[in-house]
Amino acid sequence: MSNRLINWFKFASPATFYPLAEKIWRWSTLIAVVLIAVGLYMSFFVAPTDYKQGEGYRIIFVHVPAAWLSMFIYLVMAFWSVVGLVYNTRLSAMMTSALAPTGAIFTFIALWTGAFWGKPMWGTWWVWDARLTSELILLFLYLGFIALQGAIDDTRRADRAGALLVLVGVVNIPIIHYSVKWWNTLHQGASVSVSSGSSMSSIMLWTMLIMALGFWAYSIAMAMARVRCIILERERDTTWVSELPEVRQ
């Protein structure tokens, strides 16, 4: 047991995490490319046309995974913020700031594809219902976090202030998730749930899951690539960085 614990904490140091991040980055890029290619093929050619919504429904294969990830990435950021504040590890703050742009992009994609879906289905690009509004707030939270990190020069203060901001904003996540249950809104209820299964045909569900996994792999790959850059930038004065083959060249 203690042996396993030591192994985990070993990777809390940027110097040991850096090579691991490279491996994870390579593999998850590969997985992301394969899964998203398969998922896109299935969503355009394999999944049947919806009898009520026609062809336009196919955008949910991008929309739903992006919306899932926009919330999940924020939770992961909150997790790393807690770890960073409790254990005072530098790497957790780097992970938080590496995840933020990806989360913001997925939030934006979720809103954007939602608008594309809303125009033919609801007849409008945008409605001010609870879920759309709370997702928009999530986008603002991501942008606020990025702006706050950019404004503080002292990295230690930037890390801790950012972590606190993420934790304050985490209140919004349950509001987004339950917004379709709490308020009876235009946005439809969840099609997939853990307890009662799915209200979609299984081929659609599989396509959506493959896309979701592909987006997961993409997020991991992006976060790892970005965290490697952040590590190099912050640790540029250390010997281990100067001894790296890619730096020495």
Binding site: T133, I137, L143, A147, L148, A161, V168
Partner: peptide, 23 residues
């Protein structure tokens, strides 16, 4: 408190706080 002593603190406060004030 988060933006204390930062350049452009006033704008930053609005950016951070306004989303939280929406409810």
């Amino acid at each position: 408190a988060l933006t204390l002593g930062l350049r452009g603190g006033g704008i930053m406060v609005s950016l951070l706080v306004l989303p939280l004030c929406i409810p």
